[in-house]
Design a protein around this nucleic acid. Structure first.
Lengths: 199, 199
DNA sequence: CATTGCATGTGAACGTCGTTCACAATAAGC
DNA sequence: GCTTATTGTGAACGACGTTCACATGCAATG
């Protein structure tokens, strides 16, 4: 064995993600750099390569963790006894809350693309599915037809996604002074064909 | 005067954007690098700094040009004599067409963020306004109330934006096999409270 | 207890990036 | 023809991602 690392080998992945997450939360994708992470952890870059992977792997793992945390946040916002429409609205607001609370961390999900145009890894796609699956289950009573429900979920998801994207990148306030949460409410009511509560 | 550059000084900005655009279209933001552009143009990086600006300036100018081209594309899709609803649908489809035809170039708009969290320059925000302004004018007959129209335009814009974002980054096919254009149609009909033509 | 072998963290190296700046080259003014 | 002001250049700096030969120290062996 070589001389011991400053941290346990099995703890390294999580520690690396913690550090990467702190940089990402403060400075976005630009702040997430292999050498910086290694220095902060107290380890040499090569060690991170051995145990975790390259910089894209780190960013992808970090994004998966962010998605998992969003899922927890959404789960806490839903009321298992509540009505579907109310839960959908609660989801939409919880989603925007989460993004507003972690704008840069969320931004990394939007900024990052696969190197060389490779497809998304299966385990990452699964994490996306998990997230939309939550919305899907909430919408189930409203759209019994599965095909239509999937279409609606995807469209609603994409719409909220775009709203969050514009809001975090500061490109929304340019266009509109409204609270993004109001716009999210508008989206949900329109997609679910509800009556507008207050136009 | 120093020895002449390979290109005229006044032509340099456009040539730089052309080259940057080619790299961007092929490889996304990762492919847009100062030294690579300089080498391709046949000039030294310092000259680009003198005449155009730093790498963020170049990306921003390139994105503004992409937005202007989208505007032209949208203008061609609208029928000045046509109905508002039809024009909105045409806009949505033209938008997705444009993004599908230039996925990587469009992706650069989504990937790029301001360094150090600086706000967006005014001239870039104006270009965004120009684009949404087109949609705004088309929706005018449908929503005479300006406040509501602005809300609807912003929400619809954000929704299409999200759809395009997921589609270009390959994160949409994971969730749904539908043609993005169908989902766009769904968005428009729902936002305009139209009857679904074919559910 | 001494020796071997191997797993693994390290440090140095390579090529790239963005950016700065002293310098040199040249067109224009005299 | 000489001077001067302009401006493109090349070299330099520090940071980046990535690779790899090497050395280090535990575990198994005698």
């Amino acid at each position: 064995m070589p001389r011991k690392m400053k941290v346990n080998r099995e703890d390294l992945p999580e520690i690396v993600l913690d550090v990467a997450g702190r940089f990402a939360a403060r400075e976005g994708l630009r702040g997430v750099a292999m050498r910086r992470i290694a220095q902060e952890v107290g380890v040499v870059p090569g060690s991170i390569y051995n145990v975790v992977g390259d910089i894209d792997e780190i960013v992808l793992r970090l994004n998966a963790r962010t998605l998992r945390r969003l899922q927890e946040h959404l789960r806490r916002a839903a009321d298992p006894q509540g009505k579907a429409a109310a839960n959908t609205l609660a989801f939409a607001e919880a989603y925007l809350d989460f993004v507003a609370a972690n704008p840069r961390l969320w931004g990394v999900i939007l900024e990052h693309t696969m190197p060389g145009g490779e497809p998304i890894p299966g385990w990452y796609a699964a994490e996306l599915d998990q997230t939309t699956g939550l919305v899907d289950r909430v919408l189930e009573p409203l759209f019994p037809d599965e095909a239509e429900r999937t279409r609606t979920v995807t469209a609603l998801w994409a719409a909220l996604h775009g709203l969050a994207s514009l809001a975090t990148s500061g490109k929304l306030s340019v266009l509109n002074d409204d609270d993004p949460r109001d716009l999210a409410r508008l989206m949900v009511t329109r997609f679910l064909k509800l009556d507008d509560p207050a136009a």
